[in-house]
């Protein structure tokens, strides 16, 4: 596969193992459904970014609900969730959750065993990319996936750099629909 350059150039990959770029929401949904113990890590950009006036945190929570994925609220995400009347399944900051995920014997947020697929959404891309690097190298027992509108080379599965927000919005909506179909 020819190299995809991440949107933010500070994240350009110096290495050979890079994420599979996926644009098809159906394929993303299938990967999520196939996972036995997925986890959705929610970052603070979800409180800042919106698509047509709808905050990204709402998309994230719909994804979590549609596929029954436990959530991990990082930074101040929990404040917004409290406002929305939703309790996250766990609270760790981003480096803490990654540190826990690294350990194959960690019991996971539902105490059912470590997660096999971790979705990251709303973490600033440089920190996110560094976190994904930790898992790429030191957590062979799990796969990572990103939902932000940029390409993350260090993930296992990543969205492309969406040129337009509408494309991203269409993807997220289709993903939610596809996940719901599986219920």
């Amino acid at each position: 596969m020819s190299a995809v350059i991440p949107y933010h150039r500070v994240n350009v990959l110096t290495g050979i193992k890079s994420a599979r770029l996926i644009e098809d929401a159906q394929e993303y949904a299938d990967l999520i459904k196939k996972a036995r113990r997925p986890l959705l890590v929610l970052g603070p950009l979800l409180l800042k970014w919106s698509l047509d006036g709808k905050l990204l945190i709402e998309y994230a929570l719909e994804i979590a609900k549609a596929a029954n994925i436990p959530t991990c609220a990082t930074a101040q995400v929990r404040a917004k969730m409290a406002e929305l009347g939703i309790k996250p399944d766990s609270f760790y900051d981003v480096v803490e959750i990654i540190n826990a995920l690294k350990d194959p014997n960690w019991r996971g947020v539902r105490k059912e065993g470590n997660h096999d697929l971790v979705l990251f959404f709303g973490i600033r891309s440089d920190l996110g990319e560094q976190g994904l690097s930790v898992l790429k190298h030191f957590a062979p027992h799990l796969k990572t996936m990103t939902l932000c509108k940029f390409y993350f080379p260090n993930a296992n599965y990543s969205l492309p750099n969406f040129r337009k927000d509408e494309q991203w919005k269409a993807f997220l909506e289709s993903l939610i629909d596809n996940l719901k179909k599986g219920e």
């Binding site: 110096t14 193992k17 690097s133 790429k136």
Partner: peptide, 19 residues
């Protein structure tokens, strides 16, 4: 958190240290 997956410190390299 590796910032770069390679090492280019000597003439044996670049060495890929992934995983």
């Amino acid at each position: 958190a590796p910032f770069c997956d390679l090492c280019c410190f000597c003439t044996y390299g670049k060495c890929d240290l992934t995983e």
